[in-house]
Nucleic acid binder design. Structure first.
Lengths: 379, 379
DNA sequence: TTGTAAGCGTTATCAT
DNA sequence: ATGATAACGCTTACAA
């Protein structure tokens, strides 16, 4: 494969001049540039990025570290990142952590060896030590979706508190009395914030937070199934379930299917995150949908700004509100669906609104809720 | 950041010795090795991959080039590739082409500059020129999902002919008379093979291939919607639609929803590829499901074998059969669903079987079908 | 506007 | 078992 030296020889110039043409430097004679470009075409020359990186200390590569690319939320985020990166001429290195500390560590090692210019990461918990190596090496880093404790660092997040609050308030408005929450992992900021939103909504409605209806676990379908089984083992049974993410909801659904429990006739089911193409296909889940693509591209933008801007400027934390998408899973819309006599009916997604921000009063109870939540352990 | 020289100095050895420890060479004294390892830990040393690549001509990185990571099929493939790569200590560079020649070209340029050790690619059409640059540079390449004309090259594919044949035969068995096919792009091998399977199944049943019921287009939802509109504009209307992939099916569904056409009462709808989590969630589509994860990990295995084995050994073409997953979208199972009186019912996915291979007689009509298909153009 | 020389951090080669 | 030296292909610094 041709090197810069080959091109230089063919064009009758020095390597430096070729390098200048390659990098679009202004101080190159037009004719010289033309000769060099011709030589580049003739030899089908492609610069060796390893050599370039070694010298320039830039790899034109960023890494995206997510829990599981198989989850729609993350694939959409990834698409947002990738599109933005492509525009800027960067490549994207992809890694799945499966919410596993060991995998995350090993993956971070790999990207540090690659000397990527920056990392976009959804850390598996809120312990800032897990990304310490990145900070130590001053690698530009953007947190996505989740927070880290006591670290001012660029980040892009959805509105977990607000989304959960809106979902649970909606259930309460429908008359649900025993609203269970199947939560994510303690330690993940989104999991804690969604629990908080749940708690706030109950308080706001004058309902008690009941430890029986609150289960901490993982963002995985298997946990949703297990937790649903626990919730339906005793009496009374819940009349609504709030799943902390889409994976959990899928597991719950699986359990309900097996047991012949009908949604929404027997129990309402709502969740955080959108449900793949099911938005179009299966309009039964009421969800708090996050703007995943926008979150991904915003994170990429932030990262590129940081890469160019350096460590000086202050950290930016971007919050992106989502939408509460009301569908048949809560009883109301189902009637309409049945009236239309088919599984296919128009307008099932009609009612869509932005998540309302918490008001001052709501914010006041926040601290109390946090205290309450802190005491709940799974039985 | 520490370099190999720093480590060498601290351990009191030469850089070469450190390099030997790093690469697990046998000829290093145990005590020396221990000292070096200690120094590595002390300095939190991480080798610079750019430098290593420059010298060793290996990047420990592979590229995965797919149409759209947002499509479940491809995210599952990606996951298969990534898991396998991680095991072997490779990183994965991800790129979306959107079935766009220009994007594919630009992406291939990028990975060649990166000097990746290998590429797994789903080429946007069957013209082998599109990946010529890879072959010219002798970059290990594995084709995934699609064929290229006249090129013996490692590849992993599902069974497009067999899957399409099984789907259409199923529709015929249900009594469908006017089975439309909304096909993918002419030029993509899977699109052509699925059309062939459609054609074979019709012939086998003594039905005529009718140009009105056959539309070439793209693997995109927008095309599904457009084609459905064309099909439903005239008379008679189709009583079944075979969508050539999941994206197309989503578009068709969108159209039917808007128009109030019910599935499966008014028209049957089946497609190639599984439907995201909808398999669990929305058991109405009968699909020919490909083993996407296995396809991805098989492709990665093949690639690593090629990277290590070199160009000598003959190309391997792996075919992976899928499953025909029967669901309610074809009328039969819907009755059972309705009898259960709910959207949630068990057993909707019960009937699952492997795609049967074509028999000799079927293979004989293949050529005739190909001729017929060649003459169909969209009206 | 162009060129010379040095150096990025590692591994290959050859020598001891 | 270990080391000295050169080389990978490029960009930076400086000079002309």
């Amino acid at each position: 494969m041709a090197t810069i030296g080959d091109v230089a020889r063919r064009a009758g110039v020095s390597k430096v001049t070729v390098s200048r043409v390659l990098n679009g430097a202004a101080n190159v004679n037009a004719q010289t540039r033309e000769r060099v470009e011709q030589a580049i075409r003739d030899l089908a020359y492609l610069p060796n990025l390893a050599a370039r990186s070694l010298r320039s200390r830039q790899t034109q590569t960023i890494a995206l570290v997510v829990p599981d690319i198989t989850n729609v939320f993350w694939t959409t985020v990834a698409r947002g990142v990738e599109d933005q990166a492509q525009k800027k001429g960067y490549s994207v290195l992809l890694g799945n952590t499966d919410e596993n500390p060991e995998k995350q560590r090993s993956y971070l090692r790999a990207v540090m060896q690659q000397r990527v210019d920056g990392v976009i990461i959804a850390p598996y918990n809120r312990d800032s030590d897990t990304i310490r190596p990145l900070l130590d090496q001053k690698i530009a880093t953007v947190l996505i979706d989740r927070k880290l404790d006591g670290l001012a660092i660029d980040s892009v997040r959805g509105d977990s508190v607000g989304g959960a609050y809106a979902l649970v308030s909606h259930l309460i408005g429908l008359g649900c009395q025993r609203i269970a929450m199947i939560a994510g992992p303690r330690g993940a900021s989104t999991a804690e914030e969604r629990a908080l939103g749940y708690c706030l909504a109950l308080r706001q409605a004058g309902m008690q937070l009941d430890a029986r209806w609150m289960r901490w676990g993982e963002y995985k379908a298997a946990w949703g199934e297990e937790a649903a089984a626990m919730l339906f083992a005793g009496e009374p049974k819940p009349d609504a379930i709030f799943a902390a993410n889409n994976q959990i909801a899928l597991g719950v659904w699986e359990y309900l299917l097996k047991r012949g429990v009908r949604v929404p006739q027997d129990v309402a089911l709502v969740c955080f995150d959108e449900m793949a193409d099911s938005a179009r296909l299966f309009p039964f889940f009421t969800v708090a949908a996050q703007p995943a693509y926008a979150i991904g591209s915003a994170a990429a933008d932030l990262l590129f700004a940081r890469i160019q801007g350096g460590q000086d400027q202050p950290a930016q934390e971007i919050g992106m509100a989502g939408k509460l998408v009301l569908r048949a899973s809560c009883g109301r819309l189902l009637k309409q669906a049945q009236a239309d006599g088919a599984l296919a009916w128009p307008g099932a997604e009609a009612e869509v609104r932005a998540i309302p921000p918490l008001n001052e009063e709501e914010l006041k109870v926040l601290e109390a809720c946090q205290r309450e939540l802190a005491e709940i352990e799974n039985v």
